[in-house]
């Protein structure tokens, strides 16, 4: 897949800017992937919980099968208030579960 990654991005970004736009999209794609990789290593190395480790691995596998991730990230970060409220509700529950359940 890596050998024709530029073509994939070119295809995906037809309606948007070319050239520099694709360059920056590729940069962010590699940034996302390296972040996920480093994050998984970090979780596997430091977290004592098996569930968390498995969870991180599953998420990593899931994301790796759905590259390119950049467009999904962009779609999840629009100005819409629905998305923000969804994530806020999720965060509130997550914080309470983490602090009270103590993963």
């Amino acid at each position: 897949m890596l050998d024709r990654v530029y073509e994939i991005f070119h295809e995906k970004m037809k309606d948007k800017g070319q050239g520099m736009g694709i360059g920056s999209a590729l940069t962010s794609e590699f940034l996302m992937l390296s972040f996920l990789l480093i994050g998984t290593i970090l979780v596997l190395r430091t977290a004592n919980s098996t569930i968390l480790g498995f969870g991180a691995l599953i998420i990593l596998a899931g994301v790796l099968f759905t590259v390119p991730t950049v467009f999904k990230v962009e779609k999840e970060n629009t100005d819409s208030i629905n998305l923000s409220s969804f994530y806020v509700a999720l965060t509130l529950a997550l914080l309470l579960i983490i602090f009270l359940g103590g993963i």
Binding site: D79, S84, T91, F99, L100
Partner: peptide, 22 residues
């Protein structure tokens, strides 16, 4: 512990971290 969670949520908002970054 509940207080920690609630204050952390407030902190995320005041500083514009993840769910509030948009």
């Amino acid at each position: 512990l509940v207080a920690v969670a609630l204050l952390t949520l407030g902190w995320l908002y005041e500083s514009g971290l993840f769910p509030f970054h948009i």
